[in-house]
C-alpha cells in the first residue's frame, strides 16, 4: 500500500497510544469502582467509525472524509483500540485529573447520583432549543464544519436532523451545500445503475459465487430484526436484499458476511423517517413514491458502504479486525487487573 502513510500513522498512533490508553484505563477504573457510571462504553479503533447502540443513539464516524484517512485507517500497524466513555464524562475526567488522590476512595453513592443526573440531562439535550439552534446553524453553513458538527452530535442528534447529519458525518453528502444535491443525485443514480447491472441480471448471467451470495442474503433478510414486523414488509425485504447484494459484489475481499444485514437496518429507519410520520411500527412503505423509496435505498447503500469501509477487516477471512480488538480488550483487562 502506501508505506509512508502507514509509518506516519504508526508513529502518530504510538505517540498517542499511551496517553489514550491511560485515559481509558482511568475511565474504566472509575467505572469499575462505581464512582462514575457513564452508561455507555465505546470500543473503537482510532479514527474509525463509532457505533452506538442503534436503538438509543447514532452512528458517528469520527473522520469520514478524505481518502488518505481511509488508507491510514486500514493499515493495521497504527491502529489500536480506544475504549472511551462519553456523555457527562469530560467533567468527571477533569475532576479526576485535578484530584487524583480522591479517585478511588469510597465515596461512591453521591458521585454516582451526580453523574446519573448529568446523564439524564445530557440525554435530554438533543431536544434542547439552544442545541437545536446550534445544529441548524452548523447545517445551514455554506460549507459544513464537520468537526463542529461531530462535536455537537456527540451527545445526540435531534431525530429530524439525523438523516442529514448522518449523511454528512459518514462522508456521503458533501459538506459544500452548493454541490450537495448534485452529488447525491449522481450517487443515487450510480446505485440504481448498479442494481440494474448486477442485481437485475438474470440468474444465467450471474456467476456461481454470485448466486451463492444471493442465496445467503435471501436466507438472512427474513431473519433480520425478526421481532419487528416493519422489516418484514416485502418492499423492505427487497430493498435490504438489493443493498446487501450490491455491497457484497462490490467488496469481494469480504463479500457478504452474516451480521452485515443488521448494520443496514438503522439506515433504513433513519432515512425512511424523512418521508413517513409516526411510530416505525406503524409505518406503511407503500405510501412512498417509487422515487422516494429509491433514494432511501440508495442512501442506505452508500452510508452502509461508508460505515463498513472502516471496519472491513472485521469481515475478511479469519476476521483479523475482530481478533485485534479482542486482543486489545484482553490487554486492557490485564492492565486493569494488574
Amino acid at each position: 500500500m502506501k508505506p509512508s502513510i502507514d509509518n506516519e500513522s504508526k508513529k502518530d498512533g504510538n505517540l498517542n497510544a499511551d496517553s489514550r490508553f491511560n485515559q481509558t484505563l482511568k475511565s474504566v477504573q472509575g467505572l469499575l469502582s462505581g464512582k462514575s457510571f457513564p452508561g455507555r462504553v465505546l470500543l473503537s479503533r482510532r479514527a474509525e467509525t463509532r457505533i452506538e447502540n442503534p436503538q438509543v443513539g447514532n452512528i458517528i464516524p469520527e473522520r469520514p472524509n478524505g481518502d488518505n484517512d481511509f488508507v491510514a485507517d486500514s493499515s493495521d500497524s497504527g491502529s489500536y483500540v480506544k475504549v472511551e466513555s462519553y456523555g457527562p464524562k469530560p467533567m468527571e475526567l477533569s475532576e479526576e485529573r485535578q484530584n487524583p488522590s480522591a479517585n478511588h476512595t469510597s465515596e461512591v453513592p453521591p458521585k454516582s447520583t451526580t453523574s446519573g443526573t448529568l446523564r439524564l440531562s445530557s440525554g435530554g439535550r438533543s431536544t434542547d432549543s439552544t442545541r437545536i439552534a446550534k445544529f441548524k446553524k452548523e447545517l445551514s453553513a455554506p460549507v459544513v464544519d464537520l468537526d463542529a458538527l461531530r462535536e455537537l452530535a456527540w451527545s445526540g442528534v435531534p431525530s429530524d436532523m439525523r438523516p442529514l447529519v448522518w449523511r454528512l458525518l459518514l462522508g456521503y453528502a458533501p459538506t459544500n451545500s452548493d454541490r450537495r444535491e448534485m452529488i447525491l443525485t449522481r450517487k443515487r443514480l450510480e446505485y440504481v445503475d448498479c442494481v440494474a447491472q448486477y442485481y437485475d441480471a438474470s440468474s444465467a448471467d450471474k456467476a456461481e459465487d454470485e448466486l451463492h451470495t444471493l442465496r445467503q442474503i435471501s436466507v438472512d433478510c427474513p431473519r433480520t430484526v425478526p421481532d419487528v414486523a416493519f422489516f418484514h414488509q416485502p418492499v423492505i425485504q427487497a430493498c435490504l436484499e438489493r443493498i446487501l447484494y450490491i455491497w457484497a459484489i462490490r467488496h469481494p475481499a469480504s463479500g457478504y458476511v452474516q451480521g452485515i444485514n443488521d448494520l443496514a437496518t438503522p439506515f433504513l429507519v433513519v432515512f425512511l423517517s424523512e418521508h413517513i410520520e409516526g411510530e416505525m411500527e406503524d409505518w406503511v412503505v407503500s405510501k412512498l413514491t417509487p422515487a422516494q423509496l429509491s433514494n432511501v435505498e440508495a442512501d442506505c447503500y452508500w452510508c452502509l458502504s461508508k460505515l463498513l469501509d472502516n471496519i472491513q477487516d472485521h469481515y475478511t477471512f479469519a476476521q483479523p479486525g475482530i481478533q485485534r480488538l479482542v486482543f486489545k480488550l484482553k490487554e486492557l483487562v490485564r492492565r486493569i487487573d494488574g
Binding site: 482511568k26 469499575l32 469502582s33 478511588h104 469510597s106 486493569i336
Partner: peptide, 19 residues
C-alpha cells in the same frame, strides 16, 4: 476457549489501584 474474567477484577481495583 480462553475467557476473560471480569468478575475478579472489579473487586480489588478500587483498593489496589495506584493512580
Amino acid at each position: 476457549p480462553d475467557t476473560i474474567d471480569f468478575s475478579s477484577g472489579s473487586t480489588h481495583t478500587s483498593s489496589s489501584c495506584s493512580c
